[in-house]
């Protein structure tokens, strides 16, 4: 499939080290020792951010920027905080607050699973990112295949829900 240029551009931009997409640990300058943390878990965070953008029109970072107490804003965003570990409880609090709010914005059949994926992939606790079903500190696998299956399942469910909705509309019209 041929993607529009603009989309390709943004994908390229997302893959760079940018204020807008970088995960919290990088924004606070936390030193990540393993490739898995630096790359794979960073990618998972951006995956969660992409989901939040598609479903809730807002990136996780924009939420942090808006809701974190001013004193906790990282240096990368012109704040003066540079300790990921000290800021972490505040990041967790904002993250969980917004997930609770977002959950109410989706239909029930979809809400739980989408929020659950964001929770697993976008948690500010970088060491916990990945599918909780396979997560194991020694495993190189973060369980991305499980999210693929989950979205496949949701896609199928969405087509059923769409049919149901169409039927209801037709019945209402007649």
């Amino acid at each position: 499939m041929m993607l529009p240029l603009q989309f390709n551009n943004r994908v390229a931009l997302r893959s760079c080290n940018r204020h807008a997409y970088a995960p919290p640990e990088q924004l606070y300058g936390y030193e990540l020792k393993s490739w898995k943390d630096r790359r794979q878990r960073c990618d998972l965070y951006q995956f969660a951010s992409l989901i939040s953008y598609l479903f809730f029109d807002s990136s996780l970072n924009a939420i942090y920027r808006e809701r974190l107490p001013v004193a906790i804003i990282p240096v990368a965003w012109e704040g003066d905080h540079d300790s990921y570990m000290d800021a972490l409880p505040y990041l967790q609090q904002v993250f969980n607050e917004v997930l609770a709010e977002w959950q109410l914005l989706l239909p029930q059949w979809l809400a739980h699973e989408i929020i659950d994926v964001i929770r697993q992939c976008g948690t500010p606790v970088f060491g916990e990112r990945g599918s909780r079903k396979v997560i194991n500190p020694d495993s190189p696998d973060l369980g991305i295949n499980r999210f693929v299956s989950q979205f496949d399942k949701l896609g199928f469910r969405a087509s059923l829900e769409a049919k149901k909705l169409g039927k209801q509309k037709r019945e209402a019209a007649s």
């Binding site: 931009l13 940018r18 970088a22 300058g29 936390y30 540079d82």
Partner: peptide, 19 residues
């Protein structure tokens, strides 16, 4: 809530909003 010593790692993140 601030660290005793500032982190030595500096961010070199680039703004994207102009693009």
């Amino acid at each position: 809530l601030k660290p005793l010593r500032s982190s030595l790692i500096k961010n070199h993140l680039q703004p994207i909003s102009p693009i």
